[in-house]
Amino acid sequence: MSIASVEQVAAAVREVLRDLDRGRASRPRVGVSRQDVFAERLLSLRQAEGFAANRHEIRIAPGTVVTPLARDFLKRQGISLKVVSRSEVERVRDPGEWGLAIESDSGLISAFRRSLLDGAHPWHEVEGSAEAAADWVIDSPGRGVVLLTDQASVAVWLGCRVPGVRAAQVGDVDSVDRAIRWLGVNLLVVEPAGKSISLLKQMSLVFQRAGAPRTVEGLEGRV
């Protein structure tokens, strides 16, 4: 029996790696990012094979049927399945349209603006006044605006005068979350003084990631 040389072993390893790369390239990809929810009715083996190899969890909508072959495949890959809430499914199906309005500008605000607009999630620049922001919100369903101003209370009052606008002043991430859950806020008013770029961006993204603003049950006809 002949013994393979180091060069032959290395060549064999390279060939195996090339085969693996070709297999990955030919594997169908499913259009779900790490943060998204698989919201289709059926998750088949073919779709399961399309998920990224380094994924640890697949989030699926309530009622999604996972075939036994797909479930076994994901288990072998070490990928778990998590059923998310219906509200999160709605967020995926209707991500909304988002605007940024700046009434009070500064060097910090300019840096925040660049950071937000250059990010992966799309934002529209809206004229920097409460009235213009409110008009933009109601011009099309599913819109939300972040308004930066030095006079938040006045901006909230002006915004709420426009039918269909649900304005709220917020100062941190927790207050953004409450405004989303209890008001269905679509005009988020922030006084930027004393807030870092990181906090302003985090508040804006929490607002956006909630999906298209919706009127909270019980508030219909009152706002």
Rank of each mutant, 00 (worst) to 15 (best):
I3R: 12
V9D: 01
V13Q: 11
V16G: 00
R18Y: 09
L20N: 04
D21N: 11
R22N: 12
A25F: 14
P28S: 07
P28I: 01
R29C: 05
R29E: 12
G31I: 02
V32C: 05
S33A: 12
S33R: 13
E40I: 04
S44V: 03
S44Q: 04
S44G: 01
L45K: 05
R46M: 04
A53P: 01
N54M: 05
H56F: 08
E57P: 01
E57K: 11
R59E: 12
R59A: 11
R59D: 03
I60S: 03
P62E: 00
T64W: 07
V65A: 11
V66H: 03
P68D: 11
A70R: 07
D72T: 12
L74I: 09
K75N: 08
I79T: 00
L81I: 13
V83F: 09
V83Q: 14
S85H: 08
R86L: 10
E88N: 01
E90V: 13
E90A: 13
D94E: 14
P95K: 00
P95N: 09
P95M: 06
I102K: 05
S104A: 11
S106E: 06
L108A: 14
S110R: 15
F112R: 01
L117N: 02
D118F: 00
G119C: 01
A120C: 00
A120Q: 08
P122M: 05
W123G: 02
H124K: 13
G128Y: 02
A130E: 07
A130W: 06
A133M: 00
W136R: 03
I138E: 02
D139A: 14
P141D: 05
G142T: 06
R143F: 07
R143E: 05
V146M: 12
D150P: 00
D150Q: 08
S153C: 00
W157L: 15
R161E: 10
R161L: 15
V162C: 06
P163H: 06
V165D: 04
R166M: 09
A167D: 03
S175V: 09
R178C: 08
G184R: 13
N186Y: 10
L187P: 02
L188R: 04
I197Y: 07
I197T: 09
S204C: 10
V206M: 07
V206G: 02
R209Y: 10
G211N: 10
A212V: 07
P213I: 09
L219P: 09
